[in-house]
Write a protein that binds this DNA or RNA. Sequence first.
DNA 1: GTTAGGG
DNA 2: CCCTAAC
Length: 677
Amino acid sequence: MVLQRRLDYGFNGYQVPFLPRGPRSARGKRHTCEKAAEDQMCPFELLASVAGKLLVEENSPEPSNERKGDSKHAFTKYNVKEEELDEVKASNVGVYDQGSYNDGTLASEVGFRGQTRIVTMKECSQASSSASLGHSSIIIKRDPSVDVASVEESLVNGSKDEFERQSTVTAGSRHSKVEDGIPSPLRFECRQNKMGAHGNVSDACLEDLMNVDTKAPLLSSESSADEPLHGDGIPHSTSFLKCLNDLGLSVDRDDDEKSSGCTQPCNTPSKPARPPRTGDRHKLQSFSSKFWKFGRTEPKDEDFCNTDEELKPVFRSRKMVYTRQRTQRCTFKRRKLFERVPVSMSDGTLTTEENGASSSLTGLKTAYESEVFQVKLGIKSFKVPELLIKMPETATVGSLKRTVVEAVTAILCGGFRVGVQLQGKKLRDDSKSLTQAGISHGGGLDNLSFTLEPKAPQTLKQLTANKVTTCFLPACDGSDPPTRFPAARSLDDAAFADSCTVPLHLGKSSLYCLESDHDSAPSPAHAMSAEDTPGSRALAIVPAMEIEALAVVPYHRRSETAPRRIRRPFSVSEVEALVQAVEDLGTGRWRDVKLCAFENAKHRTYVDLKDKWKTLVHTAKISPQQRRGEPVPQELLDRVLAINAFWSQHQAKLHHPKHPPPPEAPPPPPPPPSLLA
DNA sequence: GTTAGGG
DNA sequence: CCCTAAC
């Protein structure tokens, strides 16, 4: 017997809490991060962090080959040779892989700047990143050559820009070149000016650290962390050297190039970064993993003295993929311009400024030779649909947690895209120019809004053959509001901070039993062993609902990849109830039919009933040999024919009142044909 | 949000 | 069962 429990899992519409901008220095930032982690970390991010920790805690003794395999698989796409990076980058629009846990876990990256956050997912199905999108200032040229798609891409890239700006490990990014509306890949540069106080590892430093080879498989813990670095094997940049210093390492170098990209010509490449030796990678990756352990929290100084032994395998196995091209430094220049743009809070709606921050945009205007207006974007909330999770009673708490992690991952792992809405109406035609779409200085800007839509590759994710399934289901029973998880910001933060507290809500009234799987109910021992073995999942995830857009503006569209509802043939008794109801109410009142006869059948919508009636009529008209499925008693089919004939005639009369046949059926409540017979 | 109809 | 037009 499998007890199925519905977990009202209410990320619905929660607001991302405000996080004040912290000091820019590394130390200050760390403080901010920690504070945020303690006090007001975005619950989702906490979930993500927690998820990571969960897996570590629960699976840590097992850096198994399976996991290796998973990881490898998960990162295949990104785990490319350096010379291939361009191609890869060009093919990925999503936020970049910044390293992730390897076990299907969410890797959270927590940003602490800006007031709002969004969660963006990259294409890699196994990893995800959440980031903060405070205010992305996006320059959009008002020009016929800039179309809606460009705007969307600019927004996406704007968020990535924000990612990057907030330090961390930006692998690379693509930006729309607003000059011509054609996206072109740009690379971020390590930035000296991001360095924090002396002695602290800065963002730029980390970036450089990331800029080492990560193609190697899992690093063995036997690698010597003390192995000296060799200049040949590492990127040469000030920040990188600084990192090494922070690590207690040193390296000879001969150029003293500052990496402030804005002062460098775009075509001045520095020494190409080459993979360090394994030991170096080990150390560096250890460092990186540490850094990532709690999202954006900066590592403490003493972290650098630690060895990998302290790192949980899941972190150590994370692979970092990065790109950097020193040959394109224009990005930084652009970013600097953006950074000077005064930031004012928006409330989730989009505001515009005519030639906002014109002084700082002068160069841009000149460069673009076109009128430019600035879009300020704030996104305050996103939405994760409710989940239905069926768990055997014997399942472990840990497996429950993992299931939720997987479920959320499944929803969000597919990346996101941006939709543009004008006056609440979706702009679907990407080829339209902004002017054609009605976005211009003259009007429309105030009514411009954006949606974040999961790309969710909602394919069936069958993790094991166990017949316990986890479903994403729409909240379809009436018990939703009371059991819905409260807005995350109102939750006990301590609960989120506790790695054992995944934000689940096992509501009392939300328990129900849909079906049982008598044959395959795993024995307790079986369940335990299956679920507690890393790499072996006792649960399958069967996404079955529309993934609602990450709602900036309410937006509903069935995800292309969302699977269709499971087919549930009507039973004879259902057919009987339907026939009776239609007999009483007539055709064309499917909502009433639903309410009267199928109110408790949550899986039957009035459209379903209408469709079933349609097929019933068809079935009744064909020969019994042609019929399929469970046979419907002829008596019912006869009634169907009679009812259909009656009501079609009745409706015909309604539609053609000019030629009313004898009123044998008084309209208001027309007698059912059964009474006429 | 419902209904009707094609797929 | 899905999708969409029409209301």
